[in-house]
Nucleic acid binder design. Structure first.
Lengths: 365, 365
DNA sequence: TTGTACGCGTTATCAT
DNA sequence: ATGATAACGCGTACAA
């Protein structure tokens, strides 16, 4: 019942916020002022290092500082925020926290924010039904100074619409390449990445290159599109069975591999849309007693940390995560954030190929 | 310069908070009240579903609701919070976001919080020097209703002290098993996990079981302690070279493996303190042309998602992450949160062994 | 050099 | 059934 829930939450919070073990309550500026025998405004000025016309008696200044320390005064960020100060909070809405790729992105985001004195608030919008919650929980919150979208949310019209009506700057990372962007966007040049991967395989003599894609928008669609185009340009389009589309899980490796190997001519290499898929393929191949790279070459995309330590280590397209995150953060809370004038910027960063041990020249038959 | 930084942040925030593309400002209750021709307090009551003696004219109620919707009114969480409402924010301080284990924990935490209507604020305290920052950034913030420590922070005295002086309930997950806990703690029964792993190996005939530990406190120390004890109890203590202590990275696998294999009698199995280490060992063994599990059995700890998809899949001790997180959350923001009376609860959950394909009977010589 | 007073957007307690 | 009003903790013009 709504009533009960409210009462409960309120009570718990009140207890948490206003009392502690010894029954005391948080020390406010007023408390410090009273103890020091000065006005609250004086305390405010002293503790904030006198912004405007510097003027404080060294004596009272020292006294106030001492008392504040002694009383264990701590500023109340919420009161500050209410006054218009930045909350130093950056909201991150991520489609799937489970995805190790986004885990890495969150890590990078957290680091970048930390360097700027910001903290990260996490939110999800996994299922479509969750839009509302994500919206009300994090976004509706004008308590974030800015919001970063991690992944492609172009299909979440409601969320995007809500965001643009909000009052915080928004930036989308890996948010696909739609035409009319309501906010700045930073992503990777998928086409360049796919080209690098395919050229690498072709230089090794591979012609029968299959593809395992992921059922999603944005990046994933761009990658499969680039694969189709580049394959068509280099000797004709691949047979239909060469293209598999699966969920982005390591477990998808097995069915995808089975389907591809059932196809003639037999593929000598597989390009996976993500490292997660590629690692799943490695595992599936092992379970089938297929040797990598002797019997089959595999290339991934992302360069997850695990890609360097798999068996065998994975040749992959390295995603410039830190750079993308840095650009994105700069665009929403940086000194040169987008001012909302004109078209929203769309930054595309270049990936690079990392050759490891999951690829080899095509076997002489 | 402090001055410049303040001015900058303030300006950006003011711009972000108070204006948007069309130059308008957020719609407040006062705005709605004015438009509806009623008092602001009336709007408050209506929009909050009349907490006390229910009494609102259906007409005005409907009108206010309509106008609020039309104007796009959204409550201001900060103002609410200032009034004592819970922020519905839970602070998570994690030692190392890079660690996939904690990434999984954060995921679980995020899910658990979401179910309760909370959002997660991320903070780190990687290096000791960062304590202060973590403190001021997230904690100093009474803006969190509660704080969850992810990992062992017993050595961070300053942080812990700061926390206990704070006004938000704190709970430590995987926080080690020190004596005097200033706050509730939830963790895993490391000894039981180690025992399960070693008994599994011994049942397979292994006697020469080496150990790769991680240089850290809490859980890691408990695991190495349990290993030493259990080995001693089952046939005498292992030779010194059998115990390696490394950083918790996949890259640590190679040096650890080299060191262990240089030891006589040659180990037939290795127990790794974490899956990250175990996966690194898998990789290192592959690079050395060692077959797993034929030449060497390997057991990990944690059961990371990747453990099921490695080559070969990894036998490991499954960490009950969701359960631990759920208990922890319950202890700080749940209905039955610790009331601060008496000793802080210390909950220990049991892990379970997951047998996969990285372990096999010791080879007949 | 320091104190007074007001407002940020809410909620809650009085009156009416 | 609804309107005025006082906090919440802080920053800051303005007055002294």
């Amino acid at each position: 019942m709504a009533r009960e829930r409210t009462a409960d939450g309120d009570g718990a919070a009140r207890r948490a916020r206003r009392t502690r073990a010894d029954g005391s309550r948080p020390v406010t500026m007023t408390d410090v002022a009273a103890a020091a025998g000065v006005a609250q405004s004086t305390v405010s000025r002293i503790l904030n290092d006198a912004p405007a016309p510097i003027s404080v008696s060294p004596q009272t200044r020292e006294r106030v500082h001492a008392i504040a320390r002694e009383l264990g005064y701590r500023p109340h960020p919420i009161a500050r925020a209410l006054r218009g100060a930045p909350t130093m909070l950056l909201g991150a809405i991520v489609r799937d926290i489970t995805d190790p790729f986004f885990a890495g992105a969150i890590e990078a985001l957290s680091l970048e924010c930390k360097a700027r004195g910001y903290s990260v608030v996490l939110g999800h919008a996994r299922a479509a039904a969750d839009e509302a919650l994500a919206m009300t929980a994090v976004l509706e919150a004008r308590q974030c100074d800015a919001i970063v979208l991690l992944g492609d949310f172009t299909a979440e019209h409601r969320l995007v619409e809500d965001l643009r009506q909000g009052h915080a700057p928004v930036v989308g990372l890996w948010h696909g390449s739609e035409r009319d962007r309501p906010f700045p966007t930073v992503g990777v040049d998928n086409r360049a990445g796919v080209r690098a991967a395919l050229e690498h395989l072709m230089a090794l003599g591979h012609r029968n290159i299959a593809y395992v894609g992921v059922e999603s928008l944005g990046d994933m669609q761009e990658r499969s599109g680039a694969y189709m185009e580049l394959m068509a340009a280099a000797g004709g389009p691949p047979p239909p069975g060469y293209v598999q589309t699966v969920a982005n899980t390591v477990l998808s490796g097995q069915p995808a591999l089975d389907a591809i190997l059932a196809q003639e001519p037999r593929a000598t290499a597989i390009f996976a849309a993500t490292d997660t898929i590629a690692l799943g393929l490695l595992h599936a191949a092992y379970e089938r007693d297929l040797r990598i790279p002797e019997d089959l070459s595999i290339v991934g995309f992302d360069d997850l940390p695990m890609a360097a330590a798999s068996v065998p280590s994975l040749t992959t397209v390295k995603m410039p995560i830190p750079e993308i995150v840095a650009r994105g953060v700069e665009l929403c809370i940086g000194e040169r954030a987008w001012d909302g004038e004109g078209a929203a910027p769309h930054v595309l960063l270049a990936p690079s190929l990392v050759v490891r041990r999951s690829t080899a020249p095509v076997a002489a038959r």
